[in-house]
């Protein structure tokens, strides 16, 4: 991928981080840590030319599918879907409010009111990969070229159903379908709800487990290095005969100093002042330069004002 394209992805991801913090601060609850660890991966997947979709036709039958099995990180998916144009920016701020279609966890909506880009209900960990296998089989049987991507958390990989799915994907149908159209992506941020994964129930040797179950494993050493992510996804698409799992080593809360690698920020939304500090850090602006920056950047200034207004509410 050309350097200019990489730079574009990096700048998109930065904007997405700001929007994630903005949404969560408005909502007053939600999961920043895993949303921030996943956003670079999602950005590359959706805007690096890997996931195929038609912004004008969200239900294009040949589209690739994406299942967010770690459904609590749906704010990251909402901002991505907003960028595609499936949703308006203003609507994002209704997250988690009564009557909003922006549920706290992915909800595909009832027939007639389907949510473009949300392919299945998730939020109970462990279920997404099985759904993804079903979809990968379905498109195969229908003779479509679609691929299916599924993102899992590492804590989520303690769930038995993940390994039922892992065991079946390379073998289902007696291996007739060879699901090389299936790609699992694990956000390996090493933290779950209560604590670090290693202090709760370690997963290692993690890559070896997937390999033993018959998957092709690709590790991305730094899941925030856009170049490395892009390379990882490129090689994932080249794999034939077997499903692929991309294990991306990430930092939970990436981009915000006080959230990074801190289990406390799994499921707590920032308060307005914390939200504003987060945005400043994401944008890489020093405290002393902040007011000046805001004067020069009305779009960010508007968001900051909006969050300040929440303080008095």
């Amino acid at each position: 991928m050309a350097t200019a394209d990489l730079a574009h992805l990096i700048s998109l991801a930065r904007e997405f981080r700001v929007q994630i913090i903005r949404m969560l601060t408005h909502a007053g609850s939600g999961h920043p840590g895993g949303s921030l660890s996943a956003i670079d991966l999602l950005t590359a997947l959706y805007f690096g030319g890997f996931l195929r979709y038609d912004p004008k036709n969200p239900w294009w039958p040949e589209r690739d599918r994406f299942i967010l099995s770690k459904g609590h990180c749906v704010p990251a998916l909402y901002v991505v879907l907003g960028q595609i144009g499936y949703i308006s920016e203003g609507e994002l701020l209704t997250l988690r409010k009564v009557g909003s279609r922006f549920q706290g966890h992915p909800y595909p909506g009832q027939p007639g009111e389907r949510f473009p880009g949300i392919e299945a209900a998730t939020g109970s960990l462990g279920q997404g990969l099985s759904i993804a296998i079903g979809m990968a089989l379905a498109v195969r049987m229908d003779g479509r070229p679609s691929r299916v991507f599924c993102m899992l958390g590492d804590g989520e990989c303690q769930a038995g159903q993940v390994w039922e799915a892992a065991m079946s994907a390379p073998r289902i149908g007696g291996g007739r379908y060879r699901l090389d159209n299936l790609c699992a992506i694990v956000d390996r941020n090493r933290i779950q709800n209560d604590d670090f994964v290693d202090k709760t129930l370690p997963l290692d040797p993690f890559a070896a487990k997937w390999e033993a179950f018959g998957w092709h494993v690709i590790e991305v050493g730094d899941g925030h290095d856009m170049g490395a992510i892009v390379k990882g996804l490129q090689s994932a698409l080249e794999v034939t005969e077997r499903p692929v799992v991309l294990i991306a080593h990430t930092v939970k809360g990436k981009g915000v100093s006080f959230m990074e690698n801190n289990p406390k920020w799994h499921g707590v939304a920032p308060k307005p002042a914390e939200g504003i500090q987060s945005i400043r850090e994401i944008l890489g602006v020093r405290e002393g330069d902040w007011l000046d920056y805001l004067r020069r950047t009305p779009k960010v200034a508007a968001i900051v004002e909006e969050l300040q207004a929440l303080e008095t509410k």
Binding site: G28, S29, G30, R96, Q103, G104, H105, Y107, A121
Partner: peptide, 8 residues
């Protein structure tokens, strides 16, 4: 439970 929604 509020904001987390139905799945929880």
């Amino acid at each position: 439970i509020g904001e987390d929604g139905y799945s929880q």
